[in-house]
């Protein structure tokens, strides 16, 4: 990884983050920094807090302890800080969450027009650029239900890219897909990674992790257990829980 001086500045930083759902302690003292252009793969058993962690970064969930800073803005309850962070961070969900009553093109142009105030023509030009990039420009006038799962997820990626975010969060983007569609979405994400996008991906696709991750972060019971570059993480995991988890994942794949 070539690293310029600018690449050293953390784009996303979590410091001592704690999160409770009522009495349930979902995140415990999370510390994580992500530099510009870095790709993080977040893995761990179901219920370990992976979704909660990335959803805290764009304030879909509130935290009770610690600080989250994105591109110099520290998240608080103020809508100004939340808006600023959401402008820099795009998100892709497991269940796509496309707007079913809008065409793919309308899905892509809504937020740029409403949030950035760009003209319809400009928003459509941007949308065409990103739909082309995820290779579904020919589906632009269809409704989400008319697309396959893989196409829907690529449309959701394009929709997020249309806001031209500095970082992208992926929450198990291929888990809801039929096996034959996983590859087209992963290839799209690999392309994005190659172009230098900062990414945090919750995924159990270990091939993807080996190929693009700068660091793999392993979580269990709301804590970060260990992290490291994929080579050492997979070949020489330090903790027993990591070894157990990797054994289970590899047995299934």
């Amino acid at each position: 990884m070539p690293q310029s001086a600018a690449a050293q500045v953390p784009l996303i930083a979590l410091e001592g983050v704690g999160k409770w759902y009522g009495a349930y302690h979902a995140l415990k003292n999370i510390n994580l920094t992500v530099k510009k252009g870095e790709k993080i793969v977040l893995c761990g058993p179901s219920g370990s807090g992976k979704s909660t962690l990335i959803r805290c970064i764009n304030h879909l969930e509130e935290t009770q302890e610690g600080n989250i800073t994105v591109e110099g803005t520290t998240l608080s309850d103020s809508s100004r800080s939340i808006d600023a962070v959401r402008r820099e961070v795009g998100m892709v969900f497991q269940s796509f969450n496309l707007f079913p009553h809008k065409t793919i093109m309308e899905n892509c142009t809504l937020a740029p027009m409403r949030v950035k105030g760009v003209s319809k023509a400009e928003a459509e030009a941007t949308a065409r650029k990103y739909l082309e990039r995820v290779r579904i420009l020919d589906q632009a006038d269809k409704y989400p239900a008319q697309l396959s799962g893989g196409q829907q997820q690529r449309a959701a990626i394009a929709r997020a890219l249309c806001m031209e975010p500095k970082a992208m969060l992926f929450d198990e983007p291929t888990s809801a897909l039929d096996p034959e569609m996983v590859k087209e979405v992963l290839d799209t994400m690999i392309g994005l990674a190659r172009d230098g996008m900062t990414m945090i991906c919750v995924t159990h696709e270990m091939g993807f992790a080996r190929q693009v991750a700068d660091r793999v972060v392993f979580m269990a019971s709301g804590e970060i257990i260990e992290e490291g570059p994929p080579e050492t993480f997979f070949s020489n995991p330090q903790h027993q829980r990591t070894r157990t988890f990797l054994g289970e994942i590899l047995a299934h794949h």
């Binding site: 764009n58 879909l60 949030v115 997020a160 806001m163």
Partner: peptide, 18 residues
């Protein structure tokens, strides 16, 4: 309306009215 719709709208930065 599924909760994911609100979440997607918020993640895109949309405000309440929109």
């Amino acid at each position: 309306v599924p909760k994911g719709q609100t979440e997607a709208a918020k993640a895109l930065g949309l405000h309440y009215v929109s």
